[in-house]
Design a protein around this nucleic acid. Sequence first.
DNA 1: CCTGCCGCCTGCGCGC
DNA 2: TGCGCGCAGGCGGCAG
Length: 287
Amino acid sequence: MPELPEVETIRSGLATWVTGRRIASVEVRHPRAIRRHRLGADHFAAALAGRRIVGVRRRGKYLWLPLDSGDALLGHLGMSGQLLLRPGDAVDETHLRVRFQFDDGGPELRFVDQRTFGGLLVSAGGAELPAEIAHIARDPLDPEFSDEEFAAALRRRRTEVKRALLDQTLISGIGNIYADEALWRSRLHGSRRTDTLTAATVRRLLRHVRDVLREAIAAGGTSFDALYVNVNGESGYFDRSLHVYGREGLPCARCATPIRREPFMNRSSYSCPRCQPCPRPRAPVEP
DNA sequence: CCTGCCGCCTGCGCGC
DNA sequence: TGCGCGCAGGCGGCAG
C-alpha cells in the first residue's frame, strides 16, 4: 500500500518517537513477518534486544533503523503494513505481527500487517545502507538522484513509461497511485515507450513526480481506509488532491473528460483519455 | 542479460 | 443472508 509519501510520513514519525531508545525485548507473533530474516525468529530477537536505535532512514519504500551495533532493523510495509507506537497496555491489533518493547517503559513499537506482504529483518552491518536493498535505486527526492542517469536508463529500456516508474531498480518510491498522478500531470499515457521520450519530456516527468511526492508528504500521505495511518494512527489527506487515481468516470480537472480505468498488471491504471491519449502503435521495424 | 508475469495473503464490496 | 468473484497502496523469483 504505502508509497514514498506514506513511508516518509512514517519515517518522520518514527524518528521523533524511537530515536535514541533502547530495545528491551522483541516478540515475533507471526513468522511470515520476518521470513526474509533467514536466521529465524530467535536470532532476529537476540540481534535487537539491548540495542539502541540511533536514527530512522529511508530509501524509496524501504525503512531502516540503524542500531548502535552497526546492524540495522530493515522493513518494508508491502501492501498493508503499519508501524504503530502504542501504550503497552493497549489491546493487541488483529494483525499484530511483531512487538518491540523499550527499556524506558514508554510506548511500544508494533508491526501490524493484514496481508503479510511486508516484513522485517535485521541487516548485519547495514546501518549505513543495508546490503539487502543495494538493488533499490535512489528515490527522486534523494539529493544524489541523477536525472541524467535516469534519462539515459530510460533511453536504453525497451518498456513502457509506467512500468519504468514502478521499477524500483530505476527510480524508487513510486507506486500505482503516484505513477498515475505524475503521468496525468505530465500529460503522458503510461504505455508510451520509454525510448521515445525526449530529454525535455523526461525532465517534465521528473518535475511532476517530485511535485506530487512533496505535496503528498505535506498532506501526510494518501489514506483510502484504515490500512494506511501514521505511527500515531492518523490518516493522511492527500486523497482529496488526487486527479485520476480511483476516479473512473469523474471529470478531468483540466478538460472535464471522464477519467478512464484500464487493466494494468492485474490492477488498474487511471488516466484522462483526452489529456493522455494512447500512443500510436509502433511502426514495424524495417528489415 | 532484459522484460513481463505469477504467486504470495487477507479483507471488503458488489451482484446474484 | 450467504456465497463467489473481483479488486486492493508491492515485491521477489523465475520463465522466456
